[in-house]
Design a protein around this nucleic acid. Structure first.
Lengths: 198, 198
DNA sequence: CCAACTGCGTACCGATCGGTAACATTGTCA
DNA sequence: TGACAATGTTACCGATCGGTACGCAGTTGG
């Protein structure tokens, strides 16, 4: 029993947009791969842009699901949470076909302010920035906003460098770097790193 | 006395490709803005791709000129060199129309391996990675490759986050973060930070 | 004065882009 | 059986894409 056309289109667009980029994928390619026809697409989405928006909304949603899931273990130790998160993300980033963050990619593909994709991506990134800063604060870091920004910069660097370098790239160092950065901020604040779960 | 057509095309393509992206700019737009015609473009460049390659080669060249120029002061103190470099780059990244690194952007626009733009961008990034690692080694850091990778990740994060967040974004923290990361590696190796030029 | 060469523009190409009109087909529920 | 919503079918649109055939003007050298 086949899925509804709108759903198949959405799934297919998602996969193609992420792997090849939004601009690089035509609507014809999407409907062919989804096994539907063009009018079906335009009955569910007013334009290709709105389909791209749907893709990014889905991506954003899944991002937070994964974020929360990967941050869940060791809820009492934000330091370990973040290091674990970076370790997992680095694992993805070192695999061959890695394509980074769909939201980041979308902004680089459509750099003009005011593009509908911008709002979604920016909201995601601002929320991420706030979350990281809050975790830095929770662990008692000196200058938590700075630590949060540092972690955010490392994460964005990971997204991009994973694509640039592939296996063997700097992504392999990101967890250790994040740990060093965190510990430097903790040491400066006089917080002793939690020795548990070594 | 107007410049030669080929040169005007190259300059115009450079500005447009950087500001709006390669895929987003058509050859018609380039020749219009350059005040020349399409055949003139195709007499100097075999295809749009080859024009994009020329743009990236120019970009790569200028990148290293700027890199060496900004790294020049304080040649005896690589720590200060890097902090100064990051400070300057952050200054650019916080300005409104910032568009990051043209090479990074190009790879995200053409993610397929084997695209002619890939080789240029990858060579640039690998060289940058080696340079940063060498500087980390020169300052006596513990695990210099890891520090170099950390700095590279911060730099890529700066390129991207500058575009995402604009003024007020995490780019403002990057120099301090880089300094903290460097000092952590130096402290671990027992190297006292150079107190000069404070 | 007349070639030959160089540099450029006019006009056009087929292909593909995102998007649509009109109608046939199917499945579902009543 | 009939009404309705959802999807497929086919053909098409104007715009734009990257790319090109061809001819014209200006300079140069003999």
């Amino acid at each position: 029993m086949p899925k509804r056309a709108a759903e198949r289109i959405r799934d297919t667009a998602r996969a193609l947009f992420y792997k090849e980029g939004i601009r690089a994928v035509g609507v014809e390619q999407i409907v062919n791969r989804a096994g539907v026809t063009k009018p079906s697409l335009y009955r569910s989405f007013t334009s290709k842009d709105s389909l791209a928006v749907a893709y990014l909304e889905d991506y954003d949603c899944d991002f937070w699901v994964q974020f929360d899931a990967e941050m869940a273990p060791g809820a009492a130790d934000p330091r370990q949470q973040i290091i674990g998160y970076f370790t997992r993300r680095a694992g993805y980033a070192l695999r061959p076909g890695y394509r980074g963050c769909g939201l980041t990619n979308a902004v680089l593909e459509y750099p003009q302010e005011g593009h509908p994709t911008h709002a979604i991506a920016l909201a995601n990134k601002q929320r991420l920035r706030a979350r990281l800063a809050a975790m830095a604060r929770a662990m008692g870091a000196a200058r938590p906003d700075e630590l949060g920004d540092g972690l955010l910069l490392l994460l964005e660097g990971l997204f991009v460098s994973g694509q640039l370098f592939g296996p063997g790239g700097p992504a392999g160092s990101v967890a250790a770097v994040a740990a060093a950065l965190i510990d430097a901020h903790l040491a400066e604040a006089g917080v002793r790193p939690v020795p548990a779960a070594e």
